[in-house]
C-alpha cells in the first residue's frame, strides 16, 4: 500500500501552489483557479484521512464531496461577480479595481 505521507505531501503541495497563485496572480479568474487548487488539496487530504484512519465511518470522503460541490457553487457565484466588474470597467485585473482604499 502506498504510504499515507505521499498523499498528504501531494495535498500540501497543491494547497501551497494554490496559495502562491492567489498571492502572485493579478487576474481575478486566475485567482479563482488558484483557490480551486487549494480546495483540491483539501479534498485529497480529506479522502486520504478517511481511507487510512477512518475506514469505517468514512466521513472524510463525504466531506470531500461537499467541498467539491460547494467549490463549484463558489466558482459560479464568483464568475458572475467578475462578469459584472468586467462589464463596468473592461478589466478583470484586481490591481485596477481600486476605487475603495483605506
Amino acid at each position: 500500500m502506498i504510504p499515507m505521507e505521499n498523499f498528504l505531501l501531494l495535498s500540501a503541495v497543491l494547497f501551497a501552489i494554490g496559495f502562491y497563485g492567489v498571492l502572485a496572480r493579478r487576474s481575478a479568474i486566475l485567482i479563482l483557479i488558484s483557490v480551486e487548487l487549494m480546495l483540491a488539496g483539501v479534498a485529497i487530504n480529506f479522502v486520504t484521512f478517511a481511507t487510512y484512519l477512518d475506514s469505517q465511518a468514512f466521513s472524510g470522503a463525504i466531506f470531500a464531496l461537499f467541498v467539491i460541490t460547494v467549490a463549484a457553487a463558489e466558482v459560479g457565484l464568483a464568475l458572475g461577480i467578475v462578469l459584472r466588474i468586467f462589464r463596468e470597467r473592461q478589466t478583470a485585473n484586481v490591481d485596477e479595481v481600486d476605487t475603495l482604499k483605506w
Binding site: L32, I81, V94, D98
Partner: peptide, 8 residues
Amino acid sequence: EAALKYTL
C-alpha cells in the same frame, strides 16, 4: 468591487 474582494 466590494463583492469581488469579499468573494475572492
